[in-house]
């Protein structure tokens, strides 16, 4: 049986762990930088990331740190850990930024901006930081829908290769407007990973 170990809700103005709000002192893109400086640090690549990757990176690091998940930091264990993320806008926030660099009047496309015009790059950023060699998947759906997320995640976790997973919703419509609801699930935690519990977490206000 799959269980929910922990979860985080990080939006433009607040952060919650398992429903408990933690103190924050900034909003939007500044909130992500402030969380990075307070809890993470030592990873300057963060500042090169696009808004979606910054969001996923900070949310995941907080989730890992909050539980001090040593199991996710040791050797080859990360072969069976996976990332399965969903959203609505894919990489559109960064797509718009890139699109402005290829205007006929002002044509200067840059690989460092273009690379983030794919939504799954954030899964790569998280995998690199945490040495996760397991599955990384990104899905786009029309709206936040607990049933679809549950069906995809639970069927993926029934794959024998996957034992632990960070999954959930990672939506960023622009650098100041975002919402991450990520869950850490595994095969040992007590809170059942089922549609009802998932829906309660995804709809948590």
């Amino acid at each position: 049986m799959l269980g929910i170990k922990n979860w985080i809700n990080l939006n433009s103005s607040s952060v919650f762990f398992k429903g408990t709000r933690i103190a924050t002192d900034a909003y939007g893109k500044d909130l992500l930088v402030s969380l990075y400086r307070k809890y993470i640090n030592g990873y300057p690549k963060f500042f090169k990331m696009d808004p979606l990757s910054r969001l996923g990176f900070v949310a995941c690091e907080l989730l890992f740190n909050s539980e001090k998940v040593e199991t996710l930091q040791t050797d080859n264990l990360n072969e069976d850990s996976c990332l399965i993320l969903f959203n609505k806008s894919a990489s559109l926030a960064n797509d718009k930024i890139y699109n402005e660099t290829i205007d006929n009047e002002n044509y200067f496309p840059s690989p460092s901006v273009f690379v983030y015009t794919l939504p799954n790059i954030v899964t790569g950023e998280i995998a690199i930081k945490n040495k996760i060699y397991g599955e990384t998947s990104f899905y786009v759906i029309d709206e936040l829908d607990a049933t679809t997320i549950f069906n995809v995640v639970s069927s993926s976790m029934s794959d024998t290769n996957n034992n632990r997973c960070i999954c959930g919703w990672l939506e960023c419509s622009n650098e100041d407007n975002f919402n991450a609801i990520l869950l850490m699930i595994d095969k040992t935690s007590d809170t059942l990973f089922n549609i009802e519990n998932l829906r309660n977490i995804l709809n948590y206000k």
């Binding site: 799954n120 990384t136 990104f138 786009v140 029309d142 995809v152």
Partner: peptide, 27 residues
């Protein structure tokens, strides 16, 4: 329709399907 999910829905609804389509965007 810039949204992949919305465009996917145009397609599934074209065929009369009411399930939410899933878009895989893994580069």
């Amino acid at each position: 329709r810039l949204l992949l999910g919305t465009s996917a829905k145009i397609v599934s609804e074209f065929f009369g399907n009411k399930n939410n389509p899933i878009v895989v965007s893994n580069a």
